[in-house]
Design a protein around this nucleic acid. Structure first.
Length: 210
DNA sequence: ACCCAGGGTCATA
DNA sequence: TATGACCATGGG
């Protein structure tokens, strides 16, 4: 994949905080829409936890609107900022060991396992493997996983099989997304069954494209 | 008129 | 543990 797509330079962002914001905003959302919301925050001069907390929900939501789910994402972003401030900021959090830091992130409203791992890998530079929908799709079609395993089962699999190295994990995940976008498309419905979960093409059609 | 995109929470069984 | 409803915008 590296040979095909080259270095991805992930995660895009001017600061660790911006990476965290992007991780919240990109939940089930096209990155193109996230960029608009990030630009709104920068233009408003609120790309920091204190400014976010000082902004009314209504106004913050209007800036996040292009990224979709803007009401829930407003709450999630503020809960993350509240957590950052209560814990002394990113600099202090850097001193916490990875397992404890991961648990702390997961306790934040709106931060699930993938978002937590995005933040751990790309903002805190921890060697944590991010498992997303593309990872499940690509590697299930390669026959290496079934695809519906629990998140942490797949994460531990990659972390045990791939050398624990943050820069390597960063590049790998970015390449998985690049490959997923370019080639490994979701399984389309076929005329014979018309039900996605029962489609006979599932697991077969993707092979030629992986 | 669909489907999809760099998920997570909550209620329910 | 495992589904389903819900959240919402912009692009193909």
């Amino acid at each position: 994949m590296y040979h095909r797509y080259g270095p991805r330079y992930w995660w895009p962002g001017d600061s660790k905080f911006e990476v965290m914001v992007g991780a919240i905003l990109t939940q089930n959302t096209n990155w193109r829409n996230v960029e608009r919301a990030l630009a709104n925050l920068k233009r408003a001069g609120v790309m920091d936890p204190q400014s976010i907390m000082a902004t009314h929900h209504r106004k913050l939501a209007s800036w996040l609107r292009p990224s979709g789910y803007f009401n829930v994402k407003t709450r999630r972003l503020r809960s993350l900022c509240r957590w950052l401030i209560e814990n002394g900021g990113i600099g202090q959090l850097q001193r916490i060991a990875t397992p404890a830091l991961r648990k702390a992130l997961l306790s934040v409203y709106g931060v699930g396992r993938e978002t937590a791992d995005d933040i751990l890998l790309y903002a805190f530079d921890r060697p944590v493997f991010v498992v997303d929908a593309y990872t499940r799709r690509i590697f299930s079609r390669l026959g290496l996983i079934q695809g519906n395993e629990d998140y942490d089962v797949i994460r531990h699999l990659f972390e045990s099989e791939v050398a624990r190295d943050a820069p390597g994990y960063k590049e790998y995940h970015a390449l998985i997304v690049a490959h997923g976008k370019a080639v490994c498309r979701p399984v389309p419905m076929c005329e014979c069954c018309c039900i996605r979960s029962l489609c006979v093409f599932d697991g077969n059609r993707g092979d030629a494209a992986t």
